[in-house]
Nucleic acid binder design. Structure first.
Lengths: 247, 247
DNA sequence: TCGAATTTGTGCGTATGTATC
DNA sequence: GGATACATACGCACAAATTCG
């Protein structure tokens, strides 16, 4: 059993990319050229290129050509909480500062009702009122991370911290805000998974469709769940670091 | 701007799958039927199906048909170190036991030399001798997780624990083994990322090519790094749970 | 500014091979 | 063995984006 032609061509290109013969930003031969080189039809070259685009090696610009993708250096997001945290606010801001980069964010809050999965994570009933906040995190003015958070309105209604990003505790982070209304956060749990990027995420993050994102379901817990969030992080941009004390 | 026909067909099928109209295991219409339904050529239906196979929704069996993929229920792997641990050995075994499943593993050890990334994680020089152990973890006799671990031979040479899975401490886990030779593990760090599955991993794990795996780089630290491992986990099978104490 | 050439994206018809039932 | 269905391949066509003279 011999390998299909389109896989042969894809392998050939992949080799050249990982070996560095084809450097990031380089233009790869057009499909017509590829087809001639390998003695096959254009259609087959199209399939080979399509595969490598899906794998994240190549990037096609219609009308211009196909190029080896620039991969940003992977940064690390420290998800543990050890240092004093010095009123730094959210974990994201603390991380950006420790890397000497300009980290900011935009957000929109609105009241909503708990979906079944959010309800389960917050320990409330499905349909209960929650404050939903959608964040776009920016590093050096580029969107790099998305997050949606939910807080039970039962806890924050009629308090100064009901809107996460307004009032005296704007930008202070969940822990500080909850403490301000007498809710002490004792623990955060993070459920980590990964999946292919969704179309609208790809657009908002400027990542290619077909790329992979890590999804973190974070829940802050005090006496009861105080906030839960779903954080979407492109794997090409960040890896997560957890520290686990032993014994 | 109107959507390409193959995307329309793919969307249609995807809807039916997530809504449950097409249940896991169901056969989807053949591409010829799909083409007739949507008034396009067979060729276009092929592209639609190919996309959904790549996304993990469908599975094609040559000669038989195309089927909605069975997704195993996602289990959780607790990565935090609930102390006590009752001599349970590795985190994997502890997790399997807590879920009432039969967790076992196979392993092969051999001496090797540190690659640059392993050397960096272990704090040794590139090329230094290490004990390399490759694990295949089984749940109910099915391979579900792969791991490769490296330990500096400088530390374990000529001790009873040099071979991780042989001798008096076989299966006891890194922490117990290291303690047995006077090395106390204080901390584990886990660097979490994700990527597409590699061909040989797909074969060993019985996962479809094109699926996604979470990759954990775990390092056990005492006075110095004592062990580092690269753990490969299919996202369809496990999500990771980290507990982070606040304050 | 215009237009021609190039390149990608998409679509169609057909053909051959092979696996399954 | 025959019918069906998938996998791969070839050749052709056209639209849209880009590049360049």
């Amino acid at each position: 059993m011999t390998q299909p032609a389109y896989l042969r061509i894809a392998d050939n290109l992949r080799q050249r990319i990982v070996k560095g013969t084809l450097a990031p930003g380089d233009r790869v031969p057009s499909r017509h050229e590829l087809a001639r080189e390998h003695g096959v039809s254009d259609r087959v070259a199209v399939e080979a290129v399509r595969l490598l685009v899906a794998e994240g090696y190549l990037e096609s610009r219609s009308g211009s050509g196909t190029y080896v993708r620039q991969r940003p250096k992977v940064k690390r997001l420290t998800r543990s909480w050890y240092r004093g945290q010095a009123g730094a606010g959210s974990p994201f801001r603390a991380d950006m500062e420790s890397q000497g980069r300009a980290g900011t964010w935009r957000s929109i809050s609105e009241t909503s009702t708990a979906s079944s999965s959010v309800a389960e994570r917050l320990g409330v009933a499905e349909g209960d009122p929650v404050m939903e906040t959608r964040y776009t995190f920016l590093a050096d003015d580029r969107p790099v991370m998305l997050s949606t958070s939910w807080e039970p309105l039962e806890i924050t209604r009629d308090t100064p911290v009901m809107l996460p990003e307004e009032g005296p505790y704007a930008g202070a982070g969940v822990v500080a805000r909850m403490r301000a209304i007498g809710q002490d956060v004792a623990l955060a749990t993070e459920v980590v998974s990964a999946r292919g990027i969704l179309a609208d995420e790809a657009e908002r993050l400027g990542e290619p469709v077909g790329s992979i994102v890590t999804v973190i379901q974070r829940t802050y817990l005090g006496e009861r769940p105080l906030e839960t969030a779903e954080i979407v992080v492109p794997v090409e941009r960040y890896e997560l670091v957890y520290a686990i004390p032993v014994d």
